[in-house]
Computed example of a mutant assay.
Amino acid sequence: MAIEVNGMSVETDENGYLVNLDDWTEEVAVKIAEDEGIAMEAGHWDLVKFLRNYYKEYQIAPAVKVLTKAVASEKGMDKKEASEFLYALFPKGPALQACKIAGLPKPTGCV
């Protein structure tokens, strides 16, 4: 499968995740988000940047538990509020949907 971005074809797997992580650009993220029914706003970009930095450091996409804890800490929320905030941004699942938009591999394990 592939998506078209700025006249270029970007290869994705059957679930819409990038095959080559180096193909990611903000334009690719916007296209994937559109396909997911998401209009990217500041909160989305903040989480995408967090995910990309986390992946760069640990070579793995974080589980929802890690995302929730990070958001709670950063925004001064409790875990329930942070979870609701994440699901409001990425209704199909913060780890799965946000990682797809961030150009990261599909998270494994408990997502």
Rank of each mutant, 00 (worst) to 15 (best):
M1G: 15
M1K: 13
M1C: 06
I3F: 04
E4R: 13
V5M: 05
G7Y: 12
M8V: 14
M8A: 14
S9F: 01
V10Y: 08
E11S: 15
D13E: 09
D13K: 14
N15M: 12
G16Y: 03
G16I: 07
G16F: 09
L18N: 08
L21W: 02
W24V: 10
E26P: 03
E27S: 14
V28R: 12
A29W: 04
I32P: 00
D35Q: 05
D35G: 02
D35K: 11
E36P: 10
G37P: 02
F50I: 06
F50K: 09
F50M: 05
L51T: 01
L51I: 10
N53K: 11
N53V: 03
Y54V: 04
Y54S: 04
Y55I: 05
K56I: 02
Q59A: 11
K65A: 03
L67Y: 01
A70F: 08
V71K: 08
A72K: 00
E74G: 02
E74R: 15
G76H: 11
M77I: 14
D78C: 03
K79D: 10
K80W: 09
E81C: 12
S83W: 13
E84S: 14
F85Y: 15
Y87S: 01
A88V: 02
L89K: 00
P91Y: 05
G93H: 10
P94C: 08
P94E: 02
A95T: 11
A95C: 13
A95M: 05
L96Q: 13
C99S: 14
K100I: 15
L104H: 01
P105L: 12
K106D: 09
G109L: 13
C110A: 15
V111Y: 07
